[in-house]
């Protein structure tokens, strides 16, 4: 299921598309991953998308914008996007950048996020 981005595995569990973003992705890889996620949501009629960013040492404006866009696109397909695993230093940096990721839901970990998505659809 991995595409041009190489080896970012996307899995769908219980109606949730789950992906753990790797740290060394460049902008092109991020756009490819975004396309793959949207495709997967559509193909599996998913209720939610869980994006694990715990490996990411930084989230700059490009990656931040991708997370926001992902949430919007999934939203239009009736799926909820939850970002999990944000490092404290990343959160502090995003605030300095003026990127508060409005519209992007967050959760402590993937388990909680999947629970929230499944509870929401019931």
């Amino acid at each position: 299921m991995a595409g041009a981005s190489g080896s970012v595995p996307i899995v769908t569990i219980a109606g949730c598309v789950v992906v753990a973003i790797r740290d060394d992705l460049d902008d092109q890889d991020i756009l490819t991953l975004q396309d793959e996620l949207v495709e997967e949501v559509s193909r599996r009629s998913a209720n939610g998308v869980v994006i694990d960013i715990s490996s990411l040492e930084i989230v700059d404006t490009f990656a931040g914008r991708m997370l926001g866009a992902m949430a919007q696109m999934a939203g239009m397909m009736n799926a909820r996007t939850i970002v999990v695993g944000m490092r404290p230093a990343v959160a502090m940096t995003l605030v300095d950048l003026g990127m508060t990721l409005e519209g992007v839901e967050t959760a402590l970990n993937a388990d909680r996020a999947i629970e929230a998505i499944r509870a929401g659809q019931a």
Binding site: V59, D60, R87, P88, A89, V90, M92, T93
Partner: peptide, 13 residues
């Protein structure tokens, strides 16, 4: 970690 993260982010931009 915080200083490193901020600097690397700035470099990325």
């Amino acid at each position: 970690t915080v200083r490193r993260t901020k600097f690397v982010t700035a470099v990325s931009e």
